[in-house]
Protein backbone atom coordinates (compact mmCIF):
# COMPACT_ATOMS: atom_id res chain seq x y z
CA UNK A 1 0.00 0.00 0.00
CA UNK A 2 1.38 3.38 -0.94
CA UNK A 3 1.12 6.58 1.08
CA UNK A 4 -2.34 8.18 1.01
CA UNK A 5 -2.63 11.14 -1.36
CA UNK A 6 -1.86 14.36 0.48
CA UNK A 7 -4.80 16.31 -0.86
CA UNK A 8 -6.92 18.93 0.85
CA UNK A 9 -9.18 16.39 2.55
CA UNK A 10 -6.18 14.58 3.96
CA UNK A 11 -4.72 17.83 5.30
CA UNK A 12 -7.95 18.79 7.01
CA UNK A 13 -8.40 15.34 8.47
CA UNK A 14 -4.90 15.14 9.87
CA UNK A 15 -4.87 18.66 11.24
CA UNK A 16 -8.46 18.85 12.34
CA UNK A 17 -7.50 20.23 15.74
CA UNK A 18 -6.00 23.25 14.02
CA UNK A 19 -9.02 23.67 11.77
CA UNK A 20 -11.27 23.65 14.80
CA UNK A 21 -9.05 26.12 16.65
CA UNK A 22 -8.93 28.43 13.64
CA UNK A 23 -12.73 28.33 13.40
CA UNK A 24 -12.98 29.10 17.09
CA UNK A 25 -10.66 32.09 16.72
CA UNK A 26 -12.46 33.35 13.62
CA UNK A 27 -15.84 33.19 15.34
CA UNK A 28 -14.49 35.32 18.18
CA UNK A 29 -13.18 38.06 15.88
CA UNK A 30 -16.48 40.02 15.78
CA UNK A 31 -16.72 39.97 19.58
CA UNK A 32 -13.15 41.26 19.91
CA UNK A 33 -13.86 43.97 17.35
CA UNK A 34 -16.81 45.12 19.40
CA UNK A 35 -14.84 45.16 22.64
CA UNK A 36 -12.09 47.12 20.87
CA UNK A 37 -14.69 49.62 19.66
CA UNK A 38 -15.96 49.97 23.20
CA UNK A 39 -12.52 50.53 24.70
CA UNK A 40 -11.50 53.07 22.09
CA UNK A 41 -14.77 54.99 22.36
CA UNK A 42 -15.55 54.12 18.76
CA UNK A 43 -19.08 52.76 19.17
CA UNK A 44 -20.52 55.86 17.52
CA UNK A 45 -22.94 58.51 18.73
CA UNK A 46 -25.42 55.97 20.12
CA UNK A 47 -23.30 53.18 21.67
CA UNK A 48 -26.26 51.28 23.09
CA UNK A 49 -27.81 50.96 19.66
CA UNK A 50 -24.50 49.84 18.17
CA UNK A 51 -24.09 47.13 20.82
CA UNK A 52 -27.64 45.87 20.34
CA UNK A 53 -27.50 45.82 16.56
CA UNK A 54 -24.01 44.34 16.33
CA UNK A 55 -24.62 41.44 18.72
CA UNK A 56 -28.02 40.66 17.20
CA UNK A 57 -26.63 40.77 13.70
CA UNK A 58 -23.79 38.38 14.56
CA UNK A 59 -26.05 35.94 16.34
CA UNK A 60 -28.07 35.75 13.13
CA UNK A 61 -24.97 35.43 10.93
CA UNK A 62 -23.63 32.59 13.09
CA UNK A 63 -26.98 30.84 12.89
CA UNK A 64 -27.01 31.19 9.12
CA UNK A 65 -23.48 29.77 8.87
CA UNK A 66 -24.47 26.86 11.11
CA UNK A 67 -27.52 26.11 8.99
CA UNK A 68 -25.53 26.45 5.77
CA UNK A 69 -23.19 23.59 6.62
CA UNK A 70 -25.41 20.72 5.54
CA UNK A 71 -26.48 22.32 2.23
CA UNK A 72 -22.86 23.24 1.43
CA UNK A 73 -21.72 19.72 2.25
CA UNK A 74 -24.45 18.15 0.13
CA UNK A 75 -23.51 20.40 -2.71
CA UNK A 76 -19.83 19.47 -2.50
CA UNK A 77 -20.65 15.76 -2.29
CA UNK A 78 -22.82 16.11 -5.37
CA UNK A 79 -20.04 18.03 -7.08
CA UNK A 80 -17.45 15.38 -6.18
CA UNK A 81 -19.66 12.56 -7.39
CA UNK A 82 -20.56 14.18 -10.68
CA UNK A 83 -16.95 15.11 -11.35
CA UNK A 84 -15.96 11.54 -10.66
CA UNK A 85 -18.66 10.11 -12.90
CA UNK A 86 -17.92 12.48 -15.71
CA UNK A 87 -14.18 12.95 -15.72
CA UNK A 88 -13.00 10.07 -13.56
CA UNK A 89 -11.52 12.66 -11.18
CA UNK A 90 -11.73 12.38 -7.46
CA UNK A 91 -12.69 15.69 -5.86
CA UNK A 92 -12.71 15.68 -2.12
CA UNK A 93 -15.99 16.48 -0.46
CA UNK A 94 -16.31 18.70 2.57
CA UNK A 95 -17.96 16.35 5.01
CA UNK A 96 -15.56 17.51 7.70
CA UNK A 97 -17.57 20.74 7.88
CA UNK A 98 -20.18 18.85 9.88
CA UNK A 99 -17.67 18.44 12.67
CA UNK A 100 -17.56 22.23 13.07
CA UNK A 101 -21.29 22.65 13.22
CA UNK A 102 -21.86 22.19 16.94
CA UNK A 103 -19.15 24.71 17.71
CA UNK A 104 -20.69 27.28 15.36
CA UNK A 105 -24.08 26.62 16.92
CA UNK A 106 -22.59 27.43 20.31
CA UNK A 107 -21.21 30.69 18.93
CA UNK A 108 -24.74 31.53 17.79
CA UNK A 109 -25.72 31.05 21.40
CA UNK A 110 -22.81 33.19 22.62
CA UNK A 111 -23.77 36.16 20.42
CA UNK A 112 -27.43 35.72 21.33
CA UNK A 113 -26.40 35.81 25.01
CA UNK A 114 -24.43 39.02 24.45
CA UNK A 115 -27.43 40.50 22.62
CA UNK A 116 -29.72 39.60 25.51
CA UNK A 117 -27.20 40.86 28.08
CA UNK A 118 -26.95 44.28 26.40
CA UNK A 119 -30.73 44.49 26.25
CA UNK A 120 -31.29 43.41 29.86
CA UNK A 121 -28.44 45.34 31.49
CA UNK A 122 -28.27 48.55 29.46
CA UNK A 123 -31.57 48.95 27.61
CA UNK A 124 -33.90 47.64 30.30
CA UNK A 125 -31.61 48.68 33.15
CA UNK A 126 -31.83 45.19 34.70
CA UNK A 127 -35.39 46.10 35.72
CA UNK A 128 -37.70 43.10 35.55
CA UNK A 129 -40.81 45.30 35.34
CA UNK A 130 -39.33 47.11 32.33
CA UNK A 131 -38.76 43.77 30.60
CA UNK A 132 -42.29 42.57 31.37
CA UNK A 133 -43.68 45.85 30.00
CA UNK A 134 -41.55 45.53 26.88
CA UNK A 135 -42.77 42.01 26.17
CA UNK A 136 -46.37 43.18 26.60
CA UNK A 137 -45.97 46.36 24.53
CA UNK A 138 -43.65 45.32 21.75
CA UNK A 139 -44.27 42.05 19.87
CA UNK A 140 -40.73 41.89 18.47
CA UNK A 141 -39.32 41.57 21.98
CA UNK A 142 -41.64 38.65 22.71
CA UNK A 143 -40.49 36.97 19.49
CA UNK A 144 -36.86 37.60 20.44
CA UNK A 145 -37.37 35.96 23.81
CA UNK A 146 -39.05 32.98 22.13
CA UNK A 147 -36.07 32.55 19.81
CA UNK A 148 -33.67 32.76 22.72
CA UNK A 149 -35.71 30.31 24.80
CA UNK A 150 -35.54 27.74 22.02
CA UNK A 151 -31.79 28.21 21.70
CA UNK A 152 -31.23 27.12 25.30
CA UNK A 153 -32.06 23.38 24.89
CA UNK A 154 -29.98 23.28 21.72
CA UNK A 155 -26.98 24.83 23.45
CA UNK A 156 -27.46 22.54 26.45
CA UNK A 157 -27.41 19.42 24.28
CA UNK A 158 -24.46 20.45 22.13
CA UNK A 159 -22.07 18.00 23.76
CA UNK A 160 -21.23 14.35 23.29
CA UNK A 161 -22.84 13.19 26.51
CA UNK A 162 -26.20 14.74 25.62
CA UNK A 163 -25.98 13.35 22.10
CA UNK A 164 -25.41 9.86 23.38
CA UNK A 165 -28.13 10.18 25.99
CA UNK A 166 -30.68 11.36 23.43
CA UNK A 167 -29.61 9.10 20.60
CA UNK A 168 -28.79 10.34 17.11
CA UNK A 169 -32.32 10.45 15.75
CA UNK A 170 -33.92 12.27 18.69
CA UNK A 171 -30.97 14.65 18.87
CA UNK A 172 -31.35 15.50 15.20
CA UNK A 173 -35.06 16.04 15.54
CA UNK A 174 -34.49 18.36 18.49
CA UNK A 175 -31.85 20.32 16.63
CA UNK A 176 -34.16 20.94 13.68
CA UNK A 177 -35.51 23.62 16.00
CA UNK A 178 -32.65 25.68 14.62
CA UNK A 179 -34.90 26.40 11.62
CA UNK A 180 -37.70 27.59 13.89
CA UNK A 181 -35.22 29.81 15.73
CA UNK A 182 -34.02 31.22 12.42
CA UNK A 183 -37.61 32.00 11.41
CA UNK A 184 -38.31 33.71 14.72
CA UNK A 185 -35.09 35.73 14.46
CA UNK A 186 -36.06 36.97 11.02
CA UNK A 187 -39.54 37.93 12.25
CA UNK A 188 -37.89 39.69 15.23
CA UNK A 189 -35.63 41.60 12.84
CA UNK A 190 -38.43 42.65 10.46
CA UNK A 191 -40.69 43.78 13.29
CA UNK A 192 -37.86 45.91 14.66
CA UNK A 193 -36.97 47.46 11.29
CA UNK A 194 -38.29 50.96 10.84
CA UNK A 195 -40.42 52.29 8.00
CA UNK A 196 -38.47 52.42 4.76
CA UNK A 197 -35.59 50.23 5.94
CA UNK A 198 -34.82 46.76 4.56
CA UNK A 199 -31.88 45.64 6.69
CA UNK A 200 -33.36 42.15 7.29
CA UNK A 201 -33.81 41.50 3.54
CA UNK A 202 -30.43 39.89 2.72
CA UNK A 203 -30.63 37.63 5.78
CA UNK A 204 -34.17 36.64 4.89
CA UNK A 205 -33.15 35.74 1.36
CA UNK A 206 -30.20 33.60 2.43
CA UNK A 207 -32.30 31.79 5.02
CA UNK A 208 -35.03 31.27 2.44
CA UNK A 209 -32.50 29.63 0.13
CA UNK A 210 -31.20 27.39 2.92
CA UNK A 211 -34.71 26.32 3.78
CA UNK A 212 -35.43 25.57 0.12
CA UNK A 213 -32.26 23.46 -0.08
CA UNK A 214 -33.40 21.56 2.99
CA UNK A 215 -36.88 20.91 1.57
CA UNK A 216 -35.44 19.97 -1.80
CA UNK A 217 -33.16 17.37 -0.27
CA UNK A 218 -36.06 15.95 1.67
CA UNK A 219 -38.81 15.79 -0.91
CA UNK A 220 -37.16 16.67 -4.17
CA UNK A 221 -35.90 14.13 -6.68
CA UNK A 222 -32.25 13.42 -7.26
CA UNK A 223 -29.89 11.20 -5.44
CA UNK A 224 -30.13 11.11 -1.71
CA UNK A 225 -26.84 11.55 0.07
CA UNK A 226 -26.79 9.28 3.08
CA UNK A 227 -26.79 11.14 6.37
CA UNK A 228 -23.66 10.73 8.35
CA UNK A 229 -24.14 9.41 11.81
CA UNK A 230 -23.73 12.68 13.68
CA UNK A 231 -22.85 10.90 16.89
CA UNK A 232 -19.80 9.29 15.34
CA UNK A 233 -16.57 11.01 16.19
Amino acid sequence: MGAPPRNFAWLVKHHFGKVRAATFAAALVPAFCLVAEWWTDALGVNPLNRLLQFTGRWALIMLIITLAITPVRRFTVWLAQSAHARYGKRVSDWNWLVRLRRQLGLFTFLYACLHLAVYVCLDAGADLQAIVDDVAERPFILVGFAAFGLLIPLAATSNKAAMRALGGRAWQRLHRLAYVIAGLSIVHFWLEAKVGEFKPLPYSMVLGLLLLARLQSRWGGGRRVPENDVTAR
Binding site: L122, D123, A124, G125, D133, E137, R138, F140, E192, K194
Partner: peptide, 19 residues
Protein backbone atom coordinates in the same frame (compact mmCIF):
# COMPACT_ATOMS: atom_id res chain seq x y z
CA UNK B 1 -48.60 55.40 24.95
CA UNK B 2 -46.79 52.39 23.48
CA UNK B 3 -45.00 52.17 20.21
CA UNK B 4 -44.47 48.74 18.60
CA UNK B 5 -40.73 49.24 18.12
CA UNK B 6 -39.42 51.66 20.71
CA UNK B 7 -40.07 51.88 24.41
CA UNK B 8 -41.58 55.25 25.24
CA UNK B 9 -41.08 54.64 28.94
CA UNK B 10 -37.35 55.20 28.73
CA UNK B 11 -34.75 56.72 26.46
CA UNK B 12 -31.02 56.82 25.98
CA UNK B 13 -29.61 60.31 26.36
CA UNK B 14 -26.96 60.60 23.67
CA UNK B 15 -23.62 60.42 25.44
CA UNK B 16 -24.86 57.92 28.00
CA UNK B 17 -24.67 54.15 27.86
CA UNK B 18 -27.79 53.05 29.73
CA UNK B 19 -31.35 54.30 29.46
Amino acid sequence: VHHPRWSQKREVRIGEMAK
